[in-house]
Amino acid sequence: MASKLPDDFRCPISLEIMSDPVILQSGHTFDRVSIQRWLDSGNRTCPISKIPLPENPSLIPNHALRSLISNYALVSPQKSCLGTDDEQPVALISALVSRSSSPELKLGSLIRLVRVTKRDSSLRRRVTESGAVPAVLDCVDSGNLCLQEKALSLLLNLSLEDDNKVGLVADGVVRRIVRLLRIGSSDCRAVAATLLTSLAVVEVNKATIGSYPDAIPALVSLLRNGNNRERKEAATALYALCSFPDNRKRVVDCGSVPILVQAVDSGLERAVEVLGLLVKCRGGRDEMIKVSGCVKVLVNVLGKGSAKGIQYALFILNCLCCCSREILDEVGREGVIEICLNLMEDEGEKIRRNAANLVRTLHGNSMLA
């Protein structure tokens, strides 16, 4: 009977049916015992892809696959955490996953699940371990606006658990998010961007999301065309993704730099933080140098911005001055040295340090002129 099971239920190492499937950073799933034995033997590459692994690789439970295997009744499932004392969440999940449930019943279940999982970590784990995620994703795909919005909100709640982040990406959530970034309602677009930020907390997800077709372009488009909330969430997602160096070129290549500069000028300070990461790559610096008025926008942040905005603006100006004589001269004409001297008395250590670095750059290059 076991031979009739799908091959995906078998561990690639032991070829046995998995009782505790876990996801490696490479995105491949193994039975916990088998992959742990592989790691304990000193191996630090994925057995399938040969991708290098960190010294202490994370093993993320694949709750959805475990539930599917358990449903075949060929692997003894662990005692469900949805016991008899939790009939309400059991009923909500049952209504959500049932093919016979009406859209109205599914919506009611989603609304209540969003409410109860918002602050309850144990319930978030229960929903995931029940195998309900595919049903939630079906609601995202449904075309029903109300179902989409509530399903996204539930996915956002579930993503608050670190163990769920890689699993959600493996289940195909990124494809749905990207689609709704383009064609969803305003609320859907904002929540979709927030969900990407949450998923990008995990390093392997930064790479996966960044390389996904249209993910970064969709965020840049939302930054350009969205309302205030959408633009803020898009900028936050871009910042999370750009902490992974390979994504910076992708963001620059989407024509994001002029859009980000304009966003900073309109008061969206999260955008200056994104620029602070993009300036670390050559393409980002080259694009900033081309943008007319970029220096004036950054200098304006020095005078009116928050502490973090000032910190990033100083860093960006210093990087640009180090690679462009024209920028250096423009910064000097804007009276930045005097501003920096005042900022060197600031309470924030990073602001003082960045201001001092910019002063040294300006003084050093002026003496060479």
Rank of each mutant, 00 (worst) to 15 (best):
P258C: 09
A240Y: 11
Q262S: 15
A271Y: 02
S266Y: 01
R250D: 08
L275D: 03
L238V: 07
C242S: 13
A240H: 14
A237F: 04
L277P: 03
V279F: 00
N247P: 00
V257I: 15
R224V: 01
V264P: 00
V264K: 11
L268C: 03
E273M: 14
N225A: 13
K249S: 15
G255H: 05
D265K: 08
L268S: 04
V274H: 03
P245D: 14
L241R: 06
V279K: 07
Y239I: 03
E273P: 00
Y239F: 15
A271V: 12
L260E: 02
A271C: 13
C242L: 04
G267Y: 02
S256M: 08
K280C: 13
E233A: 12
D265Q: 14
A263R: 07
C242N: 11
F244M: 00
L277N: 05
D253Q: 14
L278A: 06
L278R: 02
R224D: 04
N227T: 09
E269V: 07
V261F: 02
A235V: 11
A237W: 11
L223E: 01
V261W: 10
L277M: 13
N227C: 10
L260A: 03
N247F: 00
L238D: 06
G255A: 08
Y239Q: 07
G267M: 01
R248H: 04
C254Y: 09
N225S: 09
L260W: 04
R231Q: 11
L277T: 01
A237I: 15
V279A: 05
D246Y: 11
L241D: 12
N225Y: 13
E233K: 11
G276F: 02
E269D: 06
G267D: 05
A234L: 02
A237P: 08
A271D: 04
R229V: 15
R229Y: 08
K249I: 07
V261N: 09
S266D: 09
L238I: 09
R224K: 10
E230I: 09
L277K: 09
A240K: 11
E233P: 05
N225Q: 13
V274I: 03
N247G: 03
I259K: 05
D265M: 07
E273Y: 06
F244G: 04
A234T: 01
A235M: 01
E233T: 06
R229D: 15
V272Y: 00
L222I: 00
A235Y: 06
A263Q: 13
C242G: 12
D265H: 11
L278P: 05
R270P: 08
A235H: 09
V261P: 07
L277Y: 02
L223C: 10
V257S: 07
G226N: 10
N227G: 15
D246V: 03
G226V: 13
V251L: 09
S256C: 06
C242H: 03
A235Q: 12
G267L: 04
K249Q: 10
N225D: 15
L223W: 00
A240L: 02
R250M: 14
R270W: 12
L223D: 00
S243Y: 04
Q262V: 01
F244W: 11
A237N: 07
L268E: 07
R248L: 01
V279Y: 06
F244R: 01
R229Q: 14
V261L: 14
V251M: 00
S256A: 15
A263E: 12
P245S: 12
N247Y: 04
N228T: 09
A240V: 08
V257N: 02
K280F: 09
L277G: 05
R231D: 05
F244T: 02
Q262L: 10
G255P: 08
N225T: 14
K280R: 10
